[in-house]
Design a protein around this nucleic acid. Structure first.
Lengths: 228, 228
DNA sequence: CGGTTGTCGATTGTCAACAGTTTAGGATCG
DNA sequence: CGATCCTAAACTGTTGACAATCGACAACCG
């Protein structure tokens, strides 16, 4: 692989190899380029990315802390396998966090923000009309991301982003999507309506229920967890 | 210097230097042995702990991801300074997470668990009677930790522990304690009562309000944040 | 034939050295 | 006297090498 030496060096001044590699690995994990439980070979990665093992190892320690990989002493780092139980637990967290986002956003939301969110709703409706899951999914993602961004609690937004990255590790995640697009977007419209009405508790309840709908459909009642 | 070779070797087989160092640094940070904003000198730390810089750097990458330090390229790692705004944001997260814990725990809580929690209440009352903040604080901590442990959502417990570690970085945290011990423990009793009655929504509301009381006292209304 | 032991290759854990950047302090000039 | 520039020390970023460990396979023994 040939790299423009200037750009490579220019990047290095403001960013460490470790952070570049970490982002790259996160991207690869998000795109599912590794199998669950697969081992990351440090030598192979180092050779592939053209660096030494030091930055690779440092990047992996970051990934470990964010829950994307498991590190076993003397054996290596493995792409984390998220069990159904852990996914169910994550959905519960996500539900209350989105609920909080709605409660915070409703009192302060602006007309422009409502228009932005409504734009996403229309895009998703178009994807539904075209029966295009590949268009619906990123729209859905951006809709939720935007709400937590607007809510004013930056830490909440970070936490939601981290949970979302982690959810990519759960392979069966697509199950809740196929036939639910229309229902899902109806719930989205309801959420935006509550936000526009500055109804904090209503928006919180709608958002929480919206997430829990998927959780219950996939794993059963809240507080009960699948075995594996 | 002569080192007992057996003990040194035995330790290293099951745990890497990196993880040992990371735990040690976490402990030092929790005990406030570093000033906020202070730089961690890699060479000095390596010399002090008797290792090379590699494990030190790896440990710091983990701490960065868990929000305990900031890493600036070519300048080093610094003990994170948590602003009032960030602390206020954290309190809001903590409130909904504890609320979730209460909601999950109420339906499934056992008699024995109620007795355990009640025991902590009594210990805290004793600390209040003796006006002993140093006894109250760990009891308070254990009370909240126990609730999230019992609730059955392990990921929620991890998240709460991480947030708690992070809160140690906020220096003014003791402010909400001095005169509030009695009020705080009365709220604790109310929480346990709701749990014992298997009142999920009541327990959730009590727990959330309990955390938000401190937040509001320190920083003002929920959703409004201090400047610094 | 089943189980144990020993050895080898592959891989991780750790270290010491090198390269590039930042910072502090003094010399220089206005 | 103060500001600026320059130099050197200190420090971080990265690398390659060495030591220790793990997994697999073969030899050995009961």
């Amino acid at each position: 692989m040939t790299i423009d030496p200037e750009s490579a060096l220019r990047i290095r001044r403001t960013e460490s190899l470790t952070s570049i590699i970490r982002r790259e690995l996160e991207r690869m994990i998000a795109r599912g380029e590794f199998k669950a439980g697969e081992r990351l070979n440090e030598n192979a990665l180092a050779a592939k990315l053209g660096v030494s093992r030091g930055p690779i190892r440092e990047a992996c320690r970051g990934l470990e802390q964010s829950g994307l990989v498991d590190v076993v002493v003397n054996r290596g780092v493995f792409i984390r396998e998220v069990s159904s139980r852990q996914a169910a637990e994550l959905y519960e967290l996500r539900a209350v966090l989105y609920g909080l986002a709605g409660r915070l956003l409703a009192p302060i939301v602006t007309e422009a923000q409502i228009r932005t969110l409504s734009g996403y709703l229309d895009q998703m409706d178009a994807a539904i009309a075209a029966d295009d899951l590949n268009a619906f999914y990123p729209g859905n993602l951006r809709f939720h991301e935007t709400i937590v961004e607007f809510c004013g609690n930056g830490r909440l937004a970070d936490e939601c982003a981290a949970i979302h990255r982690e959810m990519h590790l759960f392979r069966r995640r697509a199950l809740d999507m196929p036939g639910r697009m229309a229902i899902s977007n109806a719930e989205h419209r309801s959420i935006v309506a509550r936000l526009a009405a500055h109804d904090a508790e209503g928006a919180a309840a709608e958002l929480e229920a919206h997430v829990l709908t998927s959780r219950v459909a996939l794993f059963g009642p809240v507080g009960a967890y699948p075995d594996n």
